[in-house]
């Protein structure tokens, strides 16, 4: 198992380098440049700035310089959007906020979604089941930029329960986390329901019932594990994108997270931040998928990694 983990981590390095390369060229080949904004610097200043950041050199030379810096010094470069800060600074500020928000949202989604899914599966084809799944369809189809303002209007502007936006104490976390969790709650509810319905139909559940076990024991001891597997595999990529920053919700609630920095940087052609954030998300994805594989093996004894 340890060997498997080490090999996967080693394998991640070339993958990440490819990710950096592709995103580097994609941003650099996009039209526009970092200092051509509404600020409209005089041409002489732009030239100076370009020279300072090495942007006057040919593209391939810039690439090699950048890669050298990333690999040898683990330095993701300076930010051209936030002039006095490095990409590392920006990530260090944004990532914890995004992770707190995304983590809370996903935890909420797991608890609510699995509870709803289990209840729906146990009351298959009942009113409760249809109701829960109808809400789930709604949750999947209603976009964040509609749900967010809706929650703000009801819970904040009408009932005055919660602050509408900005970032500070934990009460600021609730509305954006709820908004963000809706889609995932709905999806996890459906995954849990279908997984459990399938398991409950399987032969080994019939065996468990034939032993005379109570339904609650059949569910908790025999059925739940197998039905968790789809949720586990879904959780890797879902969590990676949530922790790596979400653009719409962070913008909507004015949260200084990675998604917010990313979109501002992209608008300002700040290639170093764009590549840096992409790298963070890719790393999260790789690590969390590895965690998923490990959890999978813990749940399912038939899977053994060598």
């Amino acid at each position: 198992m340890l060997k498997f983990v080490l090999r996967r981590l080693l394998l991640a390095i070339p993958v990440l380098l490819v990710v950096v390369t592709i995103s580097f060229f994609l941003v650099r080949l996009a039209p526009g440049g970092p200092f051509m904004e509404e600020r409209a610097y005089p041409p002489a200043v732009i030239e100076k700035l370009n020279a300072k950041y090495g942007l006057d050199k040919p593209l391939h030379e810039q690439y090699f310089n950048y890669m050298q810096r990333v690999i040898l010094h683990l330095d993701l470069g300076p930010s051209t959007r936030y002039l006095d800060r490095t990409v590392g600074d920006v990530i260090a500020q944004g990532l914890p906020n995004s992770m707190l928000l995304g983590g809370t949202a996903y935890l909420t989604a797991l608890v609510l979604g699995m509870a709803a899914g289990i209840i729906a599966a146990l009351r298959q084809n009942s009113g409760v089941d249809y109701g829960a799944m109808a809400v789930a369809v709604l949750g999947v189809s209603i976009p964040n930029f509609v749900l967010g303002p809706l929650l703000v209007i009801v819970l904040s502007l009408t009932l005055y329960w919660l602050p509408p936006a900005r970032w500070g104490d934990l009460s600021h976390l609730i509305l954006p986390a709820l908004t963000l969790s809706a889609l995932y709650t709905a999806y996890i509810a459906r995954l849990t329901r279908s997984g459990l319905v399938e398991v409950l139909r399987s032969d080994y559940i019939r065996t468990a019932r034939a032993k005379g076990l109570r339904e609650s024991v059949v569910l908790l001891r025999h059925a739940l594990r197998g039905s968790l597997l789809p949720v586990v595999s879904y959780s890797g990529p879902a969590l990676a994108f949530l922790l790596g920053g979400t653009i719409v919700v962070e913008k909507l609630f004015l949260i200084p997270g990675l998604g917010n920095f990313f979109i501002e940087a992209a608008n300002a052609r700040d290639s170093f931040i764009v590549v840096g954030v992409t790298l963070v998300v890719a790393t999260l994805l790789i690590v969390l998928n590895l965690v998923v594989d490990i959890v999978y093996a813990l749940i399912d004894p038939r899977i053994a990694y060598k």
Partner: peptide, 8 residues
Amino acid sequence: MSSLNPFL
């Protein structure tokens, strides 16, 4: 093959 619980 399928009548025993693979997880236990």
